[in-house]
Design a protein around this nucleic acid. Structure first.
Lengths: 159, 159
DNA sequence: CAGTATCCTCGCAGATACTG
DNA sequence: CAGTATCTGCGAGGATACTG
């Protein structure tokens, strides 16, 4: 039986529980691009209503989006990214960036990260040393952190 | 009917086609931590053999991992991250980081990114300005890039 | 427009047994 | 050890109709 992702003592697994679903990431991508209304998500993604309802609800439940009534006359709901949600831009960007590099070819990015004040493009996510210099991925390693399980530690030693 | 993710003209969707599955990300997490052998993935994840076979095969097909015979006496297969695969560390790190911040609390990271030469921890992924200074997520915006569809552009204008 | 409420289908994932 | 082969279920996702 597959354990629930939330049971893992692992931030990666916990995060996947929130957005591991196939649609969620695409909803977020569109949200970053400014989509706010139910019908717009529906049309853009070609997702069925009941699924979209469930996904949006799930995101609201986890505090990633908030549902606000932006109705001027009558009700009109909008789904907006919270701060927690906006903080997922690194994840979306990392995904896009990898796709640009390995699955797509450069120059085709449908999403661009920009400085909101100036509108200028911003350098995409990178892993850096503490002095700020970027590290090529071949020079990067990984080791268990403070919260790692005994099992993780053991397997890490063996390698 | 749901379109195949690969049909989208979007790097995010393309990437999700490679690793959008529920297990794949966790396999990669363990791969980064040094897990190489079939049985170790199996034990660590509690995944059933046939599924694991399929996932690993999928990753090999997409050039994320390679299956090599590391047998000294007899055959012993190992699944290793390719360069393309190692380049996913930004994605895994972004996921972990978000989980640390929003779902877990700090100081619990089972994975730590380190400089392979020194072993020192490395600053996690961030989005930065061209001058190298990091940008808080609330100051970040997004706009359609070169490859954006007409539809995306239109919805972006409306917001 | 923004959803509920049903019904249905297909495929992912699990369990188990077997193989070189 | 590293899989393949088979059977089974269950639930995510789709289609459609209906509602305030």
């Amino acid at each position: 039986m597959r354990r629930s992702l939330g049971d893992w003592n692992c931030s990666v697994a916990r995060t996947l529980e929130v957005l591991g679903d196939g649609w969620t990431m695409l909803i977020l991508r569109d949200a970053f691009l400014g989509t706010r209304r139910f019908a717009d998500f529906e049309a853009a993604l070609g997702i069925s209503k009941n699924i979209l309802t469930k996904r949006l609800q799930h995101l609201v439940d986890h505090g990633v989006m908030e549902k606000v009534d932006a109705g001027v006359h009558g009700t009109r709901f909008e789904y907006l990214l919270t701060r927690k949600g906006k903080d997922l831009l690194t994840v979306v960007t990392a995904l896009r960036q990898w796709g640009d590099r390995w699955e797509f070819g450069p120059g085709n990015e449908p999403i661009l990260v920009v400085d909101q004040a100036t509108g200028d493009p911003i350098e995409p996510v990178r892993i850096r040393r503490v002095d700020g210099t970027p590290v090529p991925s071949r020079d990067l390693g990984v080791r268990p952190g403070p919260g790692a399980s005994e099992d993780t530690l053991r397997r890490f030693q063996e390698r």
